[in-house]
Nucleic acid binder design. Structure first.
Lengths: 129, 129
DNA sequence: CTAGTTGCAAAGCATTTGCCTGTGG
DNA sequence: CCACAGGCAAATGCTTTGCAACTAG
């Protein structure tokens, strides 16, 4: 059902080579080095289908443009830690407790998203603003 | 520096009367009842200036258009519930526990953002809108 | 009065879609 | 071969901006 095209390959490679989630524009720039003719529309189309296939996972932080990362550990439920100093995002294990009790009467809880903000180990040690 | 206009008043009233954060479009609809000629551009302009003045606070949910609530509401710590059926956002009290234990060694936690997803009372009870 | 506001429409952006050519298998 | 994938450009949808008319103070 899915062909193995140059562009699709390039996009996957760009993601696997990156240590952090990439936005469509960043993907175009990165994968564009492999396939010069790559168009933004193709990036969007592939990203969309790859998300639907579960190959990659969207990372949407509040007020930030959407970014994508390989599915990898995304299979396991996890959350993100956003370092406010170096602006990187880390996956963190675990899950808060007592969510059900926060839901108002009559509401049904299906899922949740949590983002922690602070400083990562690297930025906590050598502190600078 | 800021005039007291019908439209600005209507927008503030719409926000204060609402129990939940409103998007620009929702504001137009709500405040538009007071001032029929209200335009979307005016809503955006006022919302922008009101945020800068600290009168209202933006509520940014992942992949969602921004919504706004009075600063007063944002002052007290709370989180949001996003109804996946009617697409509205509600303020919810309370806070999850055990966040500190989720933070990796060496990381320092400063703040957190939580969004719950599911169905609101209206959409859970009655079939659909 | 007169500067800040508003409405409308056009301009911007980011993302999506139509359509025809290219190509993987 | 030929249906899916890609490239380009037009089309969306949301937000911003230019500009002339309007109005609060």
């Amino acid at each position: 059902m899915h062909r193995r095209t140059r562009q699709r390959e390039a996009i996957m490679q760009a993601l696997s080579k990156s240590a952090r989630p990439l936005s469509p524009a960043e993907l175009l720039k990165a994968a564009g080095k492999q396939v010069k003719s790559l168009s933004l529309a193709t990036v969007y189309r592939n990203v969309k289908s790859m998300v639907e296939e579960g190959l990659i996972h969207p990372v949407q932080l509040p007020g930030e443009p959407p970014r994508y990362e390989l599915h990898e550990a995304a299979a396991r439920h996890h959350h993100h830690f956003h370092c406010e100093t170096c602006d990187r995002v880390f996956d963190i294990a675990g899950c808060p407790k007592g969510l059900e009790s926060m839901v108002p009467v009559g509401f049904s809880l299906r899922a949740h998203e949590l983002v922690l903000y602070g400083r990562c180990s690297g930025c906590s040690g050598a502190a600078r603003s």
